[in-house]
Amino acid sequence: QEELVKAFKALLKEEKFSSQGEIVAALQEQGFDNINQSKVSRMLTKFGAVRTRNAKMEMVYCLPAELGV
């Protein structure tokens, strides 16, 4: 569980995922086979993730800066 949270936060820091499906796929690539869209959705809510525009003006998920991840 701890490893999943770390990987999840690291992915969001990249600010390149525009959908929950993309986050699920990226986590599965890292070996988290039991991850699915509903789990990702709950984690996004739990950590207060928001959708914002990145440098390329794409809408992407990211974590609020005050979490200091």
Rank of each mutant, 00 (worst) to 15 (best):
E15V: 05
N34L: 09
V40K: 00
A26P: 00
I23L: 13
A55P: 07
I35K: 00
D33H: 13
G68W: 05
V40R: 00
M43G: 01
N36F: 04
G21P: 10
A49T: 03
C62S: 14
K39N: 09
K39G: 10
S38Q: 13
L67G: 14
F8Y: 00
M43W: 07
M57H: 14
A7L: 07
K16W: 04
E29G: 12
N34W: 15
Q20I: 15
D33T: 15
V5E: 15
M59D: 06
L12E: 00
L12D: 00
S19K: 08
L12K: 00
F47R: 01
N54Y: 03
S19V: 05
Q1P: 10
A7Y: 06
K39I: 14
L27N: 00
D33K: 14
A25Q: 12
F17E: 01
V40E: 00
E29R: 09
E2N: 11
N54I: 02
C62R: 08
L63M: 09
I35T: 04
R42Q: 14
K56Y: 09
K46A: 15
R53K: 13
M43K: 00
G31Y: 02
N54P: 03
V5A: 10
Q20C: 06
V69R: 03
L67H: 13
V5G: 07
S41A: 14
T52I: 12
V40Y: 00
K16L: 07
S18R: 14
A65T: 12
E3N: 12
Q20M: 12
K56A: 12
A7N: 04
D33G: 13
V24Y: 05
E22P: 03
K16G: 04
K6C: 15
Q30F: 07
A7K: 06
S18G: 13
E3R: 11
Q37L: 13
G31V: 01
G48Q: 07
E15R: 06
G48T: 02
K56H: 11
T45L: 11
G68D: 15
L63S: 03
M59W: 15
E58L: 07
V50Y: 11
E3K: 13
L11A: 06
A25C: 06
L4V: 07
F47S: 04
F32P: 02
R53L: 15
G68F: 04
R51G: 03
N54E: 02
K56V: 07
K56N: 13
A65E: 14
F32G: 00
F32E: 01
I23W: 01
A7D: 01
N34D: 13
F47A: 07
M57N: 15
V24N: 02
Q28E: 08
K46M: 13
E22Y: 03
G48N: 09
F32R: 01
E66W: 08
V24L: 10
A25F: 09
F47Y: 11
A49Q: 02
A49H: 02
K39F: 12
L11T: 03
K6Y: 10
S38W: 13
A10W: 08
L4S: 01
L44D: 01
Q28S: 09
E22V: 04
Q28N: 09
S18C: 04
V60W: 03
S41G: 10
L63W: 06
L12N: 00
Q20P: 13
K6E: 14
A49Y: 04
V40H: 00
Q30Y: 08
K39P: 01
V24C: 06
T45M: 10
A65M: 10
A49D: 02
K39S: 14
K46W: 10
G21S: 14
L11M: 09
M43D: 01
R42L: 14
E66G: 08
E2V: 08
Q20A: 13
G31S: 02
K39A: 13
F17I: 04
C62N: 05
T52C: 15
F8M: 08
A55M: 06
E2P: 10
E15C: 15
S19D: 08
R42I: 13
T52H: 11
S19R: 10
A10Y: 08
K6A: 14
Y61F: 07
E14C: 13
V24D: 01
G21F: 12
E66Y: 07
G68N: 09
E15K: 07
G21W: 14
P64V: 05
E3C: 15
S38K: 13
N36G: 07
A49V: 07
E15D: 04
Q28F: 09
L27I: 02
A55Y: 06
S38H: 12
M59K: 04
G21M: 14
E15L: 09
N34G: 14
A26R: 07
A7E: 04
I35L: 07
E15N: 05
V5M: 13
E66K: 05
F32M: 02
I35W: 03
E14I: 07
P64R: 06
E22H: 08
N54R: 02
K6I: 13
K13T: 09
L44T: 01
Q37T: 12
G21R: 14
Q1Y: 14
L12S: 00
K39D: 15
S18H: 11
L27T: 00
I35C: 02
M59I: 09
T45V: 13
Y61S: 01
E58C: 02
T52N: 08
P64C: 12
K56E: 11
N54D: 03
A7F: 07
V60G: 02
F47N: 04
N34C: 09
C62W: 06
Q20F: 07
F32L: 02
R53E: 11
E22K: 07
A49M: 02
Q1T: 11
R51K: 14
E58F: 04
K6L: 12
R51C: 15
L67V: 15
Y61R: 01
K46V: 10
Q20E: 15
K16Q: 07
F32V: 02
M43N: 01
A55C: 04
E29P: 01
D33N: 14
V50C: 09
L11S: 02
A26H: 13
S38V: 11
R42P: 01
K6G: 08
A25T: 10
L4Q: 03
R53P: 13
